[in-house]
Design a protein around this nucleic acid. Structure first.
Length: 558
RNA sequence: CGGGGCGUAGCGCAGCCUGGUAGCGCACACGGUUCGGGACCGUGUUGUCGAAGGUUCAAAUCCUUUCGCCCCGACCA
């Protein structure tokens, strides 16, 4: 491919709207352009990268017996109404009506439609298992598109769905997908790992996410380097730092105008770890008190799993329900249901005395109050592993893939049943598995770039080699360039030739920005000695090689 | 949806506070010199100042409304 014939609009300056490294570099190097918030145009270089990634996806999916099909992006509402998600999902779903007034939506995922197909085409246990996948656009009206192509409103997704007769079948397909995903992300040159995750609105019991470490990510993951425990902080279990137990006697202490843990802690000269933070929550079944240690944060999703939908009470509600101002509430003598973080079972604490401007010191959990004990705090630095007690690590990551065991969540309401060997009707057991190719590309850049530009892993680079003839007006240079270009092309290596009549500096800068892993530099001085240069984009090391040995050198480093 | 920031030439920005003929750099066009890390000199082209309404003799600038984009948070199959 000739550079001069390709649309590669590189930018010298950093676009004002871009923040994340991958976003800045994809714009500057001419891979994408933004149409509107969360909507991107992929330019020729961008398409090449996406196609490289998609090819790897297809190869690995086909290798586990998955079959590619395609699904419409426009869906009738009825299918989504049958599973209840039409009403469960809010503004994130793009909805519209067709000309006859029929409710429609744009597909944000395809469980319903895949199941719809399974309902019609799978009758017998003999038809199972099946794994179907597609690489198609998904549309979601994201509350906040961000970081370039990392979170967009329209995006490509490889989504596969497994259909099995029983749980063992599902587990097998789940494992096959987990293994395939490991291969896919390794082949794409990513640093990644698999963690336990919260199934969220997908439903189902077990799910894992594949995460690529990067400061541009949106999730935090807890790791234990000792036992290997890895989980999204959305559900990660951990033990807060242990504290020395103080043998205080129970007493009420005057704490005028001191309301927050910070204020009381300063006033009494006691570390926040010795406080119980009492929070009044309003759930569907009424008000209740949630207790966490003073240095901990309540984790809403964990609480959600215990009491269902809830919200924090307003200041007025606290006064109405508990009869005291928010800063002075505590667990002692409460008639409300109390859920408390498990770490509070041990120790002696300070908390609100349930009367204005007083706190109680010497509160002994179990004696002065009782509660339902759960892990309801957000895992944080300094906590120890819930499994092996080693110190945990927290890392920021980009979610690049996920796998869910769905069970019968979709097959039951949509009536996707099959007949087993005994002629009994049973629901199909399903799994769903997603990968975002654009996130692979973005994560690859986040993990592989330097101040000069992108450094693509070979497997997903838009071209294998870029040739830089420094002076296109020199006949000798161009003769050698053509020769090398043709030889490499004949070897099946994709080559970008910078045939523009530009100064050498411009070509070097653009080549570094674009990030093709190997550059072949052809200049007049070296040519006189029969040499060309091969440069490694990552290390910037340059090797001078005889013209006739070029192909061999490239091939051997492939 | 809450908080913050920004919309002026293709890109990056100044001008706004204190109203008075819209600027700078890059890019682009032409001429010349240059030619291995985003060259230099000269000449030139490019704008509904996001939009609407208002105040004023006069609005990029002040006021009101509105739209868009970015960041933080909430949310995120």
């Amino acid at each position: 491919m000739h550079f001069s014939k390709m649309l590669i609009p590189t930018l010298r300056e950093v676009p004002a709207d871009a923040e994340a490294a991958s976003h800045v570099l994809m714009l500057r190097a001419g891979y994408v352009r933004q149409l509107a918030s969360g909507l991107y145009i992929y330019l020729p270089l961008g398409i090449r990268v996406m196609e490289k990634i998609n090819r790897i996806l297809r190869e690995e999916m086909n290798a586990i017996g998955a079959q590619e099909i395609t699904m419409p992006v426009l869906h009738p509402a009825e299918v989504w109404q049958e599973t209840g998600r039409w009403s469960e999902i809010g503004d994130e779903m793009f909805r519209l009506k067709d000309r006859t007034g029929r409710d429609m939506c744009l597909g944000m995922t395809h469980e319903e439609i895949m199941t719809w197909l399974a309902v019609r085409e799978i009758r017998s246990y003999r038809d199972l298992p099946q794994v179907w996948y597609q690489i198609q656009e998904k549309l979601r009206d994201e509350a906040r598109p961000k970081s370039g192509i990392l979170r967009t409103r329209e995006f490509l997704m490889k989504d596969s769905y497994s259909f099995d007769a029983d749980e063992e079948g599902l587990e097998k397909n789940y494992k096959l997908h987990a293994d395939a995903y490991h291969k896919i992300f390794s082949r794409c040159g990513l640093d990644f790992f698999m963690v336990q995750s919260d199934p969220g609105m997908m439903g189902g019991a077990t799910s894992h996410e594949f995460m690529a470490p990067s400061p541009a990510g949106e999730d935090d993951v807890v790791f234990c380097d000792v036992c290997g425990y890895a989980a999204n902080v959305e559900l990660a279990l951990s033990n807060p730092e242990k504290i020395e137990i103080m043998e205080w006697e129970f007493e009420d202490v005057h704490t005028p105008e001191k309301r927050t843990v910070g204020e009381v802690s300063n006033f009494l000269k006691l570390r926040p770890e010795y406080f119980i933070k009492s929070l009044l929550l309003i759930s569907d079944s009424g008000p209740l008190l949630a207790l966490v240690r003073g240095d901990q944060e309540l984790h809403e999703k964990k609480v959600n799993r215990i009491i269902g939908k809830h919200r924090p009470a307003s200041k007025e509600e606290v006064r109405e329900i508990l009869g005291v101002e928010a800063g002075f509430i505590g667990p002692v003598n409460q008639k409300l249901r109390i859920i408390a973080d498990a770490c509070l079972q041990d120790g002696i604490y300070v908390s609100g005395a349930n009367k204005p401007h007083y706190h109680s010191k010497g509160i002994r959990p179990g004696r002065h109050f009782t509660a339902e004990w759960h892990d309801i705090t957000l895992a944080k630095k300094g906590d120890t592993c819930a499994k092996c007690n080693a110190l945990i690590r927290i890392e920021r990551v980009i979610e690049i893939g996920n796998i869910f065991m769905l069970g019968t969540k979709y097959s039951a309401p949509l009536k996707a049943f099959y007949l087993d060997e005994k002629g009994e009707e049973k629901p199909i057991i399903m799994g769903s598995y997603g990968i975002g190719p654009a996130r692979i590309a973005a994560a690859a850049i986040e993990q592989n770039h330097d101040k000069d530009g992108i450094i693509w892993p070979k497997s997903i680079a838009p071209f294998g080699v870029e040739i830089l003839p420094l002076n296109v007006k020199d006949a000798g240079t161009m003769k050698t360039t053509e020769r090398v270009y043709n030889d490499l092309t004949a070897k099946g290596i994709e080559v970008l030739m910078d045939d523009r009549d530009e100064r050498a500096g411009v070509k070097f800068k653009d080549a570094d920005l674009i990030g093709i892993p190997i550059h072949i530099i052809i200049g007049e001085k070296n040519l006189k000695e029969g040499l060309i240069e091969i440069k490694d984009r990552r290390t910037k090391e340059i090797m001078k090689v005889k013209i006739e040995d070029t192909i061999e050198h490239i091939a051997s480093s492939w």
